[in-house]
Deep mutational scan, measured.
Amino acid sequence: QNEKLANELKSLLDELNVNELATGSLNTYYKRTIKISGQKAMYALKSKDFKKMSEAKYQLQKIYNEIDEA
């Protein structure tokens, strides 16, 4: 289960640069939040902690959705 979550989180991290570029014309909230979420996700992957990875995955998905809707 950890392996599956780690792969999903890696996949979301692969999209980080594209989504970060998409924040160029948006409010600074999005820029700041996506950077923080990305850092948390990288830390969670290194720690291999299921709870941290779950939270990081949720945060990344949430900010990606917010950027898409903005």
Rank of each mutant, 00 (worst) to 15 (best):
S11V: 11
D49T: 02
Y58Q: 11
I36C: 10
K10L: 09
L9M: 01
I63P: 00
T33K: 14
Q1L: 13
S25K: 13
Y30I: 06
A6P: 02
G38F: 14
S54W: 12
Q1C: 12
T23S: 09
I67L: 06
K40F: 14
L26K: 04
T33R: 13
L60N: 00
Y58K: 13
S11R: 14
K35I: 10
G24W: 07
I63Y: 02
K57V: 14
L9I: 06
T33Q: 15
I67C: 02
K10D: 02
K57L: 15
T33D: 03
K62F: 05
E69A: 14
Q39Y: 09
I36A: 09
A70R: 08
K35T: 07
T28V: 11
V18Q: 12
S54I: 12
Q1S: 09
S11G: 07
K62I: 06
E66T: 04
L13V: 05
A22Y: 07
Y43K: 12
I67E: 01
L26I: 04
Y64P: 00
Y64S: 03
S37A: 15
E69G: 07
S25D: 10
S47A: 07
A41C: 02
Y30R: 03
K10P: 00
S25W: 08
A41I: 02
L12A: 02
Y43L: 14
S25R: 11
K46E: 13
S47D: 04
A22L: 14
N65Y: 11
Q61I: 13
V18G: 08
E15L: 15
T23K: 07
K57F: 14
A41W: 03
N7G: 10
T28N: 13
R32I: 14
K31P: 03
L21R: 10
M53A: 01
I34T: 01
K52P: 01
Q59W: 15
A6R: 09
T23L: 08
Y30P: 02
Q1K: 09
N65T: 10
Q1G: 07
I67T: 02
S11K: 14
L5M: 06
S54P: 02
Q61N: 04
E55T: 06
I36D: 06
A41T: 01
E8D: 08
D49S: 07
F50Y: 11
S25Y: 10
K4V: 09
I34Q: 01
Q61G: 03
N65A: 13
E3S: 07
A41K: 00
L16C: 03
A22H: 09
Y29G: 03
E66F: 07
T28M: 12
Q61F: 04
A41V: 03
L5E: 02
L9T: 00
I63K: 01
N2M: 14
K10S: 07
D68S: 15
K10F: 04
L21G: 05
K57P: 00
Y43N: 13
Q1F: 09
L13P: 00
T33M: 15
A22K: 15
N17P: 13
L16D: 00
L26D: 04
A41N: 01
I63N: 01
M53E: 00
K31H: 05
K4W: 08
S25G: 09
S37I: 15
N2Q: 13
N2P: 06
L60F: 02
T33Y: 11
N17S: 13
N7H: 10
G38V: 15
K51L: 10
N2R: 13
E66S: 05
K31W: 09
K48M: 14
G24L: 14
N17A: 14
I67M: 05
E8W: 04
D49K: 03
V18I: 11
L21N: 06
F50T: 06
E66M: 12
Q59M: 13
R32N: 10
E8V: 04
Q61V: 07
E66Q: 09
T23M: 06
L13I: 07
E15V: 12
E3V: 07
E15G: 07
G24C: 14
K57Q: 04
A44W: 02
N65R: 15
K48N: 12
Y30C: 08
S11Q: 12
A6L: 07
K46T: 09
K4S: 08
A70T: 04
S37Q: 14
Y64F: 11
A70W: 11
L9D: 00
Y64H: 04
S25N: 11
K40V: 07
L9A: 00
K52V: 06
Y29A: 04
K51W: 10
S25F: 11
L16Y: 14
N19Y: 15
S54V: 13
N27L: 06
A6C: 06
N17R: 14
G38E: 06
Y29S: 04
T23A: 15
K35P: 01
K46C: 09
L16E: 00
A56K: 01
S54Y: 11
L13R: 00
L9C: 00
A56S: 04
I67Q: 02
K40M: 13
N19I: 15
L12W: 02
I63R: 01
V18F: 12
E66K: 06
N17H: 14
N19G: 05
I36E: 08
I67F: 03
Y43P: 02
I36Q: 08
A56Y: 02
Y29M: 05
S54G: 05
Y29K: 05
G24D: 12
E15R: 14
T28K: 11
E8M: 05
L5Q: 01
N27G: 13
E69I: 13
K51A: 11
L21I: 10
T23N: 06
I63G: 01
K48R: 13
D68Y: 15
Y64W: 06
M42A: 09
K46A: 12
Y29C: 12
G24A: 14
E66P: 02
Y30S: 03
Y58L: 12
Q39A: 11
N17Q: 13
M42N: 06
I67S: 02
E69F: 11
L16N: 00
G24V: 14
N19Q: 13
D14C: 12
A56D: 00
N17I: 12
N19P: 04
A44F: 01
S54D: 05
L60K: 00
S47E: 07
S25H: 12
I67D: 01
N17C: 14
M53Q: 00
K35A: 09
D14G: 08
E66I: 07
Y58I: 13
K46H: 11
T23P: 04
K4H: 07
Y64M: 12
Y43M: 15
A56F: 02
Y29H: 06
Y64A: 05
N65D: 09
L16V: 03
A6M: 12
S37Y: 14
K52N: 05
S25M: 12
S11T: 11
M42R: 12
Q39P: 02
N65G: 08
K10Q: 12
N7W: 10
S47L: 10
E15Y: 14
Y64C: 04
A6W: 15
A56E: 01
T33H: 10
I36Y: 08
Y29F: 05
T23G: 06
E15H: 12
Q59R: 07
N2Y: 14
L45W: 07
Q61H: 05
N17K: 14
F50V: 07
Q39H: 06
M42W: 11
N7M: 13
S11I: 11
E3F: 07
E69D: 07
A22F: 09
K52R: 13
Y64Q: 06
A44T: 00
N2L: 15
A44I: 02
E55V: 10
E20P: 05
I63H: 01
E8T: 04
K40E: 07
K51R: 09
K46L: 13
N19S: 06
S47R: 04
T33W: 14
E69S: 11
